[in-house]
């Protein structure tokens, strides 16, 4: 009896040591992952904040050697391209999501689901090439329109899958109640199901939007970039991430400084857009519930 319990204790000491060691290793891994995150945000703030001023937000880039200038045109350009991409990506994404949730329990639905997940994994630069072939070669010039199509395509799979997920969370009884009242299918889906799930759908859409806002690779040869103001959708257009990239790989200190500022503005815009929409939709949801 005593020897037995002694042996158990000796083994469990070693096992306890392994257990403790693994616990600390897992903790260490979590810390190692968080460090770069904090470092990136810290450096963005430290290096970027000093260069953000009114001129940076409103002016166009100055030639090398001239101090000052800004990314005003790139900020506006990004807004234009993202607006266009939302026009392409949001209706198609939500539409596909509705299909998957409401009619998609069949082979075709599974095919769409699978294709959409695969499309989500297609490198953004490959999407850029395809849009170059489809739009830029056809139009014979780079344009904000081409950039919008490229980013819109990137948004579709994320929106479709998150919309599907959110719609499926709406209880089936709510749909049946609407049908029982004689409400037609389209009306049930749009004003009952989609509306109930709207907070989640909007959050998913915003995440896709935020991801598109930071995309650079597909814009390289669709929107192309521009040093000047441009309001024409059929002309090459500047974009914030594109400008950050060009400035970051340049050999000039002044441009490096502006690249940090541009990156900070980009991150702030993304965070503000996502939080704003989250706050608005969560309020709406509470109001709806009350």
């Amino acid at each position: 009896m005593t020897t037995g319990s002694l042996r158990v204790q000796r083994i469990s000491l070693r096992r306890r040591a392994v257990n403790g060691l693994v616990t600390y290793a897992a903790l260490a891994a979590s810390i190692i992952i968080i460090v770069p995150l904090l470092a990136i945000f810290g450096y963005l703030l430290m290096k970027g904040i000093g260069s953000i001023n009114w001129a940076f937000l409103t002016q166009t880039p100055k030639p090398v050697g001239e101090p000052g200038g800004g990314m005003g045109n790139a900020i506006v350009g990004s807004a234009i391209i993202l607006g266009l991409s939302s026009l392409v990506g949001i209706p198609l994404g939500i539409g596909a999501g509705i299909y998957l949730a409401e009619f998609g329990r069949n082979k075709f639905g599974n095919l769409v689901r699978f294709t959409s997940d695969v499309l989500n994994g297609v490198p953004s630069i490959v999407v850029g090439i395809a849009v170059y072939g489809l739009v830029v070669i056809t139009q014979k010039h780079f344009s904000a329109f081409a950039g919008g199509v490229a980013l819109g395509i990137m948004m579709i799979p994320t929106i479709a899958r998150s919309t599907e997920e959110m719609l499926l969370m709406v209880p089936r009884t709510i749909r049946e109640a609407a049908w029982g009242l004689g409400v037609p299918q389209w009306r049930t889906t749009l004003s009952i199901t989609l509306k109930t799930a709207s907070a989640g759908v909007i959050t998913g859409t915003m995440l896709a939007f935020a991801r598109a806002a930071g995309e650079t690779a597909p814009l390289l040869f669709t929107a192309f970039g521009n040093q000047f103001w441009n309001w024409n959708l059929n002309q090459p257009t500047a974009a914030l991430p594109l400008q950050v990239f060009v400035y970051a790989i340049s050999p000039f200190d002044e441009w490096h400084r502006q690249a940090w500022a541009g990156a900070l503005v980009l991150i702030i815009l993304i965070v503000v857009a996502v939080t704003a929409v989250r706050i608005v939709t969560s309020r709406g949801m509470y109001r709806g519930a009350a």
Binding site: I34, L37, I40, A217, I267, I270
Partner: peptide
């Protein structure tokens, strides 16, 4: 908070990772 921080890592644009990697 920990899973939120890790999700945040996924939201940083690629170009900002590149910028940080070049200079830091």
């Amino acid at each position: 908070p920990l899973s939120f921080l890790m999700e945040l890592l996924a939201a940083i644009p690629s170009v900002i990772y590149g910028l940080w990697a070049i200079f830091i």
